[in-house]
Amino acid sequence: MITLRDISDQDLVSLLREGNKDAYTEIYNRYKWLLHAHAYKKLGDRDAANDLVQELFTSLWTRRGDIVLISTLSAYLYTAVRNRVLNMMEHKQVESKYIDSLAAYTSNYVAGTDHLVREKQLMAIIETEIAALPPKMREVFELSRKSHLSHKEIAEQLNISEETVKKQVKNALKVLRVRLGLVLYIFLLVKF
């Protein structure tokens, strides 16, 4: 009996175009680790590589009817990973330039009394959002950002793994970015 594991990539793609979920699963199982390894080698960040591969496979499913293979499925997928890595790197460069220009602007700026008041208000908002984090996440975040401890030092102090510390800090930053993004926008909109 022939299973999906035994059929060629070309046949899997044909089945995928027809909406066959089992063919999609077989493609995912054949290539997810190879693509993840390829993305990780380029990015040096396992979480980013994992996100990139997940987004690629989500896109593969949603755009399955539009897939045109010029050569092989593996070449198609590797090219898609390469393009996403390049887009990600380009985005990081733009983000870095923006942060650098913002830092240069703020270092050359002399704050007046009004701006000092706004800065205190903003710090109070940030402190409120930090206080709203789950207790363990808040503790790890504060040790990292306020006490300036390394992940290793935090892990030793709290008796948890460095990976847990890294994940807690990353999750705290995600939560704060979402919560403070809108707050900062409204704050700037109202004050200027």
Rank of each mutant, 00 (worst) to 15 (best):
W33D: 07
W33P: 02
L34C: 03
L34V: 04
L35E: 11
A37T: 05
H38N: 04
K42A: 11
L43S: 02
D47W: 15
A48Q: 12
N50A: 13
N50P: 09
N50Q: 13
Q54E: 14
T58V: 11
S59Q: 08
L60D: 13
W61H: 09
W61E: 06
T62Y: 12
R63S: 10
G65E: 15
G65F: 11
G65H: 14
D66F: 10
I70N: 07
S74H: 05
A75E: 08
Y78T: 01
Y78C: 03
T79H: 06
A80T: 11
R82C: 02
N83I: 00
R84K: 14
L86G: 11
L86R: 15
M89Y: 14
M89S: 15
E90W: 09
H91W: 15
Q93R: 14
K97A: 12
K97E: 13
Y98L: 14
I99K: 15
D100N: 07
A103Y: 08
Y105I: 06
Y105W: 15
T106L: 14
T106D: 13
V117R: 10
E119P: 00
K120R: 06
Q121P: 07
Q121T: 12
Q121C: 09
I125D: 10
I125T: 08
I126K: 09
T128I: 09
E129L: 10
A131K: 14
P134H: 13
R138G: 01
R138T: 01
V140Y: 05
F141Y: 13
E142F: 12
L143M: 15
L143V: 00
L143S: 10
K146E: 15
H148A: 07
L149V: 06
S150P: 01
H151M: 00
H151A: 00
H151L: 00
K152T: 13
E153M: 05
E153N: 09
Q157W: 02
Q157H: 00
L158W: 09
N159W: 11
I160E: 05
I160G: 01
I160D: 04
S161N: 04
S161C: 08
V165Q: 08
Q168C: 03
K170L: 04
N171W: 04
A172C: 03
L176T: 01
R177W: 08
V178T: 01
R179Y: 03
